[in-house]
């Protein structure tokens, strides 16, 4: 049985559709990622699965319990770490955990066993009796992760678990999430950090405008792009170069961009020199070359025609996506904010 089965689940706020009837399954023990820009509908989707928001379409089951009909059973079987801190900062770490344990009906004996155990797991045993207002952002996050895991939920939801943390703390937090997942908990996490989804998740659902636009393992998603992208910036017009490249057997695709070319190749590291040589032969002056291995970033770009960060505020990104043809997007966006050209 799947840990989570989402069936046509949707939520509208007035006329705005935040989640547009999505369907997918999350397997037991999986570390599952919901990846997408802010406003893609990830948090709304998680909110519905946690019974904090009521769906306006479809339904979902979590650990076999229907999120509409069996709300209490769903709540009993999940742990949640919210995007914003949800700790009582006037209480100590231990007091926050004990409060949680009581709300979730843990027996006194079980509580005394579990609280030190989870504190140990996130390396907070030393500061367990300090009030939470003395904790750093990373420590608060760890305490929340420990708390979400305290009552041994079947599914743990993490909404942007590393938002606002510095790079080192983020990597540490990944380790704690992995450690929990290794103990058999199904983890569903939202993130808009591509590398986070790539490093952590078994499978990733890419969300955009309330819909799931792709769902696979990071490896498969990247493999779907076909290879590395060599970006060539040219000083002048590219004239015959695209056609010339398309005739070469190791070139998978050529895309003309605002300031040059994007060439998808089999083995980028070795082919950079070849691309430059071909450009030379075609009489095109190359001003810069870059190679990008496929990342979830490029997968997202490929699927939606927008970059995740640029698309962060979908209201701003929308006109560009509608107004420009695919190959002009980069240029259109670059000249947008500062009004150049």
């Amino acid at each position: 049985m799947a840990a989570i089965r989402v069936e046509g689940l949707g939520r509208a706020f007035g006329d705005t559709v935040a989640v547009d009837e999505v369907s997918f399954e999350v397997g037991r023990g999986e570390l599952f990622g919901l990846l997408g820009p802010n406003g893609a509908g990830k948090s709304t989707l998680v909110g519905m699965c946690c019974t904090l928001l009521r769906p306006t379409a479809g339904t979902a089951t979590v650990s076999g319990h229907d999120i509409r009909a069996e709300r209490a059973a769903v709540r009993g079987s999940i742990g949640v770490v919210f995007q914003e801190t949800a700790l009582d900062e006037e209480l100590t770490g231990v007091e926050n955990l004990v409060f949680h344990a009581r709300l979730y009906g843990l027996s006194r004996a079980r509580r005394r066993e579990r609280v030190p155990e989870v504190l140990d797991l996130v390396d907070l045993a030393d500061v367990a009796d300090d009030t939470v207002d003395t904790y750093s952002g990373g420590m608060k996050r760890r305490l929340e992760i420990a708390r979400g895991f305290l009552h041994e939920p079947a599914v743990l939801f993490l909404d942007e678990p590393t938002l606002g943390l510095d790079a080192g703390t983020r990597r540490d937090t990944w380790e704690y999430i992995r450690a929990l997942n290794d103990r058999g908990v199904t983890v569903v996490m939202t993130t808009h950090y591509m590398e986070e989804a790539d490093a952590l998740c078994d499978r990733v659902a890419i969300m955009d405008n309330g819909a799931v636009v792709a769902l696979d393992s990071p490896t498969q998603l990247k493999a779907g792009l076909g290879g590395d992208v060599v970006t060539v910036e040219t000083a002048d017009r590219v004239t015959g170069l695209p056609d010339r490249l398309r005739g070469v057997d190791w070139v998978r695709g050529v895309e003309v961009t605002g300031g040059g070319l994007g060439v998808t190749v089999d083995d980028g590291a070795r082919r950079v020199a070849d691309v430059v040589r071909l450009a030379d032969e075609a009489g095109v002056t190359v001003s810069a070359v870059d190679r990008r291995a496929p990342s979830l970033e490029t997968v997202f770009l490929d699927l939606t025609g927008r970059e995740v960060r640029a698309g962060g505020d979908s209201g701003l990104a929308e006109p560009a996506a509608v107004g420009g043809r695919g190959d002009e997007l980069g240029a259109a966006r670059a000249s947008g904010p500062d009004g150049g050209e």
Partner: peptide, 14 residues
């Protein structure tokens, strides 16, 4: 205001 209400509301208590 501080977000703690969510922790209470998501718990399996009426």
């Amino acid at each position: 205001d501080v977000g703690f209400l969510k922790e209470i509301l998501v718990a399996p208590v009426s």
